[in-house]
Simulated scan of single mutants.
Amino acid sequence: MLKIGITGGIGSGKTTVCRLFELLGVPVYYADVRAKMLMQTDEELIAGVTKAFGEEVYAGQTLNRALLGSIVFNNAGLLDVLNGLVHPAVFRDFDRWALQQKGPYVLKEAAILFESGSAKDCAYTILVKSPPELRIARVMSRDGISREDVMKRIDKQMSDEMKEKLASFVIMNDEMHLVIPQVLALHDRFTDLALTTHDIT
């Protein structure tokens, strides 16, 4: 099974691009969504989080996200501890999930694909790229927040320039280039690669 990573900064439209791949029958693993689920269901992860942050972060079987967030929000060291627990759990879950999928290749969508090390498990990576002003306008409209708040979120992420140096392919989602032909071209390429390269797992 060929594994392809896909990422993009906030407001880049990576989820929209993933939906297009899904319409083509490509299974997509949404890392952020799965991570939230795993923090409620993965016993190894729950044990690790409880040990690191205290039993009070779980009320019964339910994670107290507000409490955990308040603990790690302004403490980079504790955030690293949390990520060090969550990321391996997501890696394990993705590997299990990929084995259950049918088709020549799968996509792993992750906002921090490169930062988390997820890209290492992928044969190729895609960056969905949009101009900064367009990204800002999209997020302001979508989330109903100020430009300043959007900029704070963007500033916390790896820059597109750095991601582009690491990515295998780039999809331009700038309302000037048509996105569907770009997706179709990559779909054809990955399908051919998966069928001709049997030793990639």
Rank of each mutant, 00 (worst) to 15 (best):
G60P: 03
R65C: 00
A66E: 15
L68A: 00
G69L: 13
G69H: 10
I71Q: 01
V72I: 13
N74A: 03
A76I: 15
L82D: 02
N83I: 03
G84I: 12
V86H: 02
V90Y: 02
F91K: 15
R92Y: 10
Q101F: 09
P104L: 14
A110Q: 05
A111L: 01
S116H: 08
G117M: 02
A119I: 00
C122Q: 03
T125Y: 04
P132E: 12
R135H: 04
R135E: 06
R138E: 03
V139S: 07
G144D: 07
I145A: 07
S146H: 10
R147G: 06
D149V: 09
M151Y: 10
M151F: 11
K156A: 12
K156Q: 12
Q157R: 09
M158D: 07
M158Q: 06
M158S: 03
M158L: 10
M158W: 07
E161C: 07
M162G: 04
K163L: 06
V170A: 01
I171N: 08
I171K: 01
N173G: 04
N173S: 11
D174L: 07
E175C: 10
M176A: 08
H177Q: 14
L178A: 15
V179N: 08
I180L: 15
Q182Y: 03
V183P: 05
L184V: 06
A185S: 09
H187Y: 06
L195S: 05
T196V: 14
T196A: 11
